[in-house]
Amino acid sequence: MSLVDQARSVTGSRRLPPLLVFGALGGILLVYFALPFAVFLGRTGSVPIAETLSETASRTAIRNSLLTAPVATAIATILGVPLAYVLARETFPGKRLVEALIVLPLVVPPVVGGAMLLSVVGRFTPIGAAAASAGVPLTDSLVGVILAQTFVAAPFVVITARAGFGAVDERLEQASRSLGYGPIATFRRVSLPLASRAIVAGVVLTFARAIGEFGATMMIAYNPRTMPTRIWVDFIAGGIDAIVPLALALLAITLVVVAAVQRLAGVPTVVDR
């Protein structure tokens, strides 16, 4: 063994303790994540899952969630991705304010966000009244659920997509322009494909947040019930065991959608990007 190798092995063994400390700290958090999850799942044996899920109330809740969350995600994506691109590329006066505005729904507690929304679209506000008289009630309706989900979940796709566009070297777009493509064609052929991993990650996060949305939904549309509001109702009535079936169903739907979207877009992991 040469002197250099010896020196390396010495520093190598010296480097272990700090990593051990890091690992131990992280481990506590991991246990804290895993333990409730495992114990909760442990209750499944004592609950009639299939029967509960086939009840009308549960099926309606599942249907409502499956109708609303994808729509909210689509709205957030269609409006959020262009915004993300503008924020990644342009500087303009008031940009910081816009950025603060995007984080606002994340900072405000969902219940409060719901109350704020209610003050704009509530039944007795001008907007709410006009919409209701046009036959599209904005509260206590699926539209209301979508409004709540979009408000709370949209920041995820904006923030993630913005980071994705930011990571695309602007020179690649300039090269495309010089090769004869206008700004829109360049966005579609270069920026969008290159940021697609980040955008997909953002879409997945947004969907997961939307389908699990409770606080704002409860304020705007306690009825019709979505899975989270149904879970709340079941919990009040029957405690933890009563919500196990719907909670599992929610988890399963979310996992299936995340896996499917990633599969379709060819993205190996959400967290890495």
Binding site: D169, A175, R177, S178, G180, Y181, P183
Partner: peptide
């Protein structure tokens, strides 16, 4: 705009 100029460009990176 750049797309109407017929200029070829090679950058450093």
């Amino acid at each position: 705009p750049p797309e109407d100029r017929n200029v070829g460009i090679v950058f450093q990176r």
